[in-house]
């Protein structure tokens, strides 16, 4: 039975932001959007002990897993984010409801016989896309990382604690700068409200952007 997209409610949907969303910053220092649904997979494998894994992943996803800590590989549609020495988050821009289960199955099949774990976490996380010239200044109010342009560059991925007790993964996409922030689904409204307050503390206008 095919599933219907309209059944799904995104983590930030309860905030009803769609009505206020603008297409650009319009002078705001920071803008936040909730992008469309994505496939998010947690992949665990020891690359040095499972020599076939990189090729198998590449065959399915067209990208190789980054082996350098705190970095990502991929293109506009797919990313592999380094989460740990044997853990990656695969991000696929495929918003179909069944896509998470499908990609999980594909990847598991490709990795057959290799000791690994592929887990669908597409629904477990919220995604906030943060952009704007003040994004680094604003984020420095929420995370203890050094957000200076020389210290956190496009293509890097860092996991840290956001606000109080909320784990996040920050993926810097470009020099705008644009960050994709991944957090646990249940924390989405907290992260959004916290960012807004950080912008207030930085005396920067906060824009709600279209996803």
């Amino acid at each position: 039975m095919p599933e219907t997209t309209s059944y799904r409610q995104s983590p930030l949907a309860p905030l009803g932001l769609a009505g206020q969303a603008a297409s650009g910053l319009n002078g705001a220092g920071i803008g936040v959007a909730e992008p469309d649904f994505r496939v998010l997979l947690d992949l665990r494998v020891e690359l040095d002990k499972q020599p076939g894994a990189q090729d198998a992943v590449e065959k399915v996803l067209g990208l190789r897993l980054p082996e350098t800590a705190n970095t990502a590989t991929g293109n506009a549609e797919r990313h592999a984010l380094w989460l740990g020495p044997n853990e990656w988050q695969i991000v696929i821009h495929d918003s179909r409801p069944e896509a998470g289960r499908e990609w999980t199955a594909k990847l598991r099949e490709a990795l057959q016989g290799i000791f690994c774990a592929v887990v669908d976490v597409s629904n477990a996380q919220a995604i906030l896309r943060v952009t704007g010239p003040a994004a680094r200044e604003v984020l420095e109010r929420a995370v203890p990382l050094d957000m200076h342009a020389g210290k956190f560059q496009p293509g890097e991925v860092k996991q840290t604690v956001f606000g109080r007790h909320c784990g996040v993964t920050l993926h810097l996409l470009d020099d705008a700068p644009t960050f994709d922030i991944y957090c646990r689904r249940s924390f989405a409204e907290y992260v959004h409200a916290y960012l807004k307050d950080c912008a207030r503390g930085a005396c920067e206008d906060f824009a709600v952007l279209e996803g």
Binding site: A69, L83, G84
Partner: peptide
């Protein structure tokens, strides 16, 4: 443990 990081 790097609990809010690589979880190692």
């Amino acid at each position: 443990i790097h609990s809010h990081g690589c979880r190692r």
